[in-house]
Design a protein around this nucleic acid. Structure first.
Lengths: 340, 340
DNA sequence: TTGTACGCGTTATCAT
DNA sequence: ATGATAACGCGTACAA
């Protein structure tokens, strides 16, 4: 009821007046500290209820220096994989008492650098960055102790805490599985292989490793490049693949999202999966179980990744200068209709 | 470099000392106000750069009473539809200078009520709530002027600003389209029809209206209920539908996500789409264009909805007591392979 | 053009 | 057990 002049907000002072105590006592009640008599506590609680008071998080933050918010920067929250991942991060963060503010980077290095700057400007307690483009965030870093955790994609060689995908191992297992099913001419649909830290590069390596192990070769290279990791790009690549006239009986797609597009492209060209060509993806997005044919895929443990990332942020807040760690998510090969 | 005792943070005072000016001058430079000489301005900017100073948003917020953050509460960010929608909301909010904090409600009334309480506790400047379960948020409301915008689903009859989906009209058009394609026994796969404000109810009404208009009847009711709007539930419903033995040549699915499950269930039972049965969804999630067969669907303008919702929040911040409005998103019927 | 004093709402410290 | 006072970092109003 009694309101402050400022912004129509009920403050601790208002509550204190209403309950006939000092605002310090109100603070103690609000924060469940002891040293407050039962009668007074009840009186204060009643005053809080009646006035509709809520703690002002900004003021608390100003004192504590902590916002209780961690940022999550992903290329595009609308992509199934990142939406799925974000859901896990939000839950894990909630369990640790953090809120999550989501930023979209547009899969561009500039967006990712912005997200880091932004996170610090807004004084987020930490940032989980799902980087796919940035390759040298040295300059933006500045403070080596800022809780910045890389999630999933790029690997910056120990400069940051990093929760990695089993890129190489997973793709190798996927490729080997295709070989086990009798495929001899296995193509890969992926991004352009550019540098060393790239997720694309690592998955490509896993693919090559499996081919080598099985004595299969890929000459001419059965690599069909993408401009981005969209369904549309996947479809286009599949069409190019078929139109190339090369003999191909198995396809490794760099992500499930791309695989969905590949599936579409193959259908456009009249090829059947798994009859004419087998197909395997990476990520195990929820859709993969339900599409027809259901999609075989590499299933990293997303929940594990999200939890680990949030834990790492929390740990680094506690100990800003402890050495960084790298953790690779466990994965499972989901065998479904597309490779039967 | 020079740091404050508090939390290892560089403050305006530090910058002022470093530049040999008062902190007010620093403030003026930071906020691009004029009344600062060019030489001094440069000196201050240099000091900011060197010290790595960043404005403390909490302190600014404490003064202004505004956090610059709006909340977005959705059932589950991992579902394609909500991820997609969130992407648009984040973009639209960014254009208006807001950040977005995402909350998951788990499609439960309790979660939705929590989101409202939470939003106010954290002093978000507003909240966009994609409610699917809450039916009487009167109690949580409290302050009639709080910028709370309902997005997409439930309709609370004018108590809030509301950006609605074309539920009835869209489903009616979808059903009519099936009829146009020659379907005579059109089923609907949807949630349980409970109350009056429910999205499910409205879509069901649109379906019935179209049937009535075409002189088709649905007796016994060709309604196959879902427990939730998941792909899994869609598949189960489709299986029940086929197993019921009822003659059915068209299916309206309450959402695209459900339709994906239905597609799977029909495949499990050996039925082909559109050969044996035609299928149409609602939402036009990105996947719909790419699956095989591509999914006909009702495509509301998601970008429009997100922009409208953010605008409404902004308007209500400016004028807390202006009358609420209700806006229905335009939609388009996307005709694809599943109803050819 | 620049500086000073004060208040925003909360919490830590110290006193009673 | 409770209260007074002084920060936290920034912005406003006013003075110089």
């Amino acid at each position: 009821m009694s309101q402050n002049a400022g912004h129509g907000m009920v403050t601790m002072n208002d509550v204190a007046r209403l309950a006939g105590v000092s605002k310090m006592t109100v603070s103690n009640v609000v924060n469940n500290r002891d040293g407050v008599g039962d009668v007074v506590r009840q009186r204060v609680l009643e005053a809080i209820r009646r006035s509709g008071y809520r703690v002002n998080v900004s003021a608390r933050t100003l004192k504590s220096g902590r916002t209780g918010v961690i940022g999550l920067a992903v290329p595009e929250i609308g992509l199934p994989y990142f939406g799925h991942l974000a859901a896990h991060v939000i839950e894990a963060a909630g369990r640790q008492g953090f809120h999550v503010s989501i930023e979209q980077t547009g899969a561009a290095a500039a967006g990712e650098a912005d997200a880091i700057a932004h996170s610090r400007t807004l004084h987020f307690d930490g940032l989980i960055l799902s980087a796919v483009a940035l390759d040298r965030p040295d300059e933006q870093l500045g403070d080596a102790g800022y809780p910045l955790v890389m999630l999933g994609e790029q690997d910056f060689g120990g400069r940051f805490d990093h929760v990695a995908m089993p890129n190489e191992e997973g793709t190798k297992a996927a490729t080997a599985h295709l070989a086990d099913q009798g495929c001899r001419r296995i193509a890969i649909v992926t991004g352009r292989v550019l540098d060393d830290v790239n997720m694309v590069t690592r998955r490509y390596r896993g693919y090559l490793a499996a081919l080598a192990e099985r004595g299969l070769d890929a000459d001419p290279p059965l690599l069909f490049p993408l401009n981005d990791a969209s369904m549309e790009a996947g479809r286009d690549a599949a069409c190019r693949m078929v139109d190339s006239g090369l003999e191909i009986d198995g396809v490794v797609a760099v992500t499930d999202t791309v695989a969905l597009g590949v599936l579409r492209g193959l259908a456009d060209r009249g090829l059947r999966v798994p009859g004419d060509v087998r197909l395997i993806g990476f990520d195990d997005v929820p859709e993969s179980r339900f599409i027809v044919p259901s999609l075989s895929t590499v299933a990293p443990d997303h929940r594990w990744m999200a939890e680990r990332a949030v834990e790492l942020v929390a740990e680094r807040i506690r100990a800003p200068l402890r050495p960084t760690g790298r953790y690779v998510a466990p994965f499972e090969l989901m065998i479904r209709e597309s490779t039967r």
